[in-house]
């Protein structure tokens, strides 16, 4: 048992527990806060995998921006405690979903362990400065090889912004 393995096991327990907490809490605000906890643990995994930039964008964009947006909408709508009665239309959906999810987990764990030989030992980078130097190289790759996808992403963000404004705007004399 190396210390790295212990950190991994504890963090993965936290990640899975917070994901389940997100799924099963009655109050939507608690769901959102559990999801923030999950995102932060995944950010620590990214640090362990030698991806400091991704870890920081995970925290700022996911745990920061996206989840604040979620909390804002939940509080705006007053949707904290929606009565989540099981669906009348399809009462068999819930047990079927559990069975399918269990099947998916068992299948994927079996395939990963039994078939795929992914036994490369992953180690964290030796020092922080080492991974910060890799950050510079990553930026060079991003603005050299991936420049076109980067620009397309910026256009996508612009389109999303315009779309959100159009949806939120009141139509003059319309129903909204």
């Amino acid at each position: 048992m190396t210390s790295e393995l212990i950190v991994f096991l504890v963090l993965s327990l936290v990640a899975i527990a917070s994901a389940l907490g997100m799924l099963f809490s009655r109050n939507t605000i608690y769901s959102a806060l559990f999801l923030v906890l999950n995102f932060v643990t995944v950010a620590v995994f990214y640090l362990m995998l030698g991806a400091p930039f991704i870890a920081m964008s995970q925290i700022t964009v996911y745990a920061g921006a996206i989840m604040v947006l979620f909390l804002f909408v939940i509080m705006l709508l007053g949707a904290e405690n929606l009565t989540s009665s099981p669906s009348q239309a399809m009462p068999w959906q819930r047990p079927l979903a559990f069975i399918l999810a269990l099947t998916l987990t068992v299948e994927s764990v079996y395939l990963i362990f039994a078939r795929a030989k992914l036994d490369t030992v992953i180690t964290a980078p030796d020092t922080v400065t080492n991974s910060m130097e890799s950050l510079r190289e990553m930026a060079m790759t991003l603005f050299d090889k991936f420049l076109l996808p980067f620009e397309v992403t910026s256009i996508l963000l612009l389109v999303a912004m315009v779309g959100a404004i159009v949806l939120a705007k009141k139509e003059k004399g319309g129903r909204a």
Binding site: L5, I16, D119
Partner: peptide
């Protein structure tokens, strides 16, 4: 030692 397996299984879960 952590192998790639562990991360992928966590991701699958």
């Amino acid at each position: 030692m952590i192998s790639t397996n562990y991360y992928i299984i966590l991701s699958a879960i």
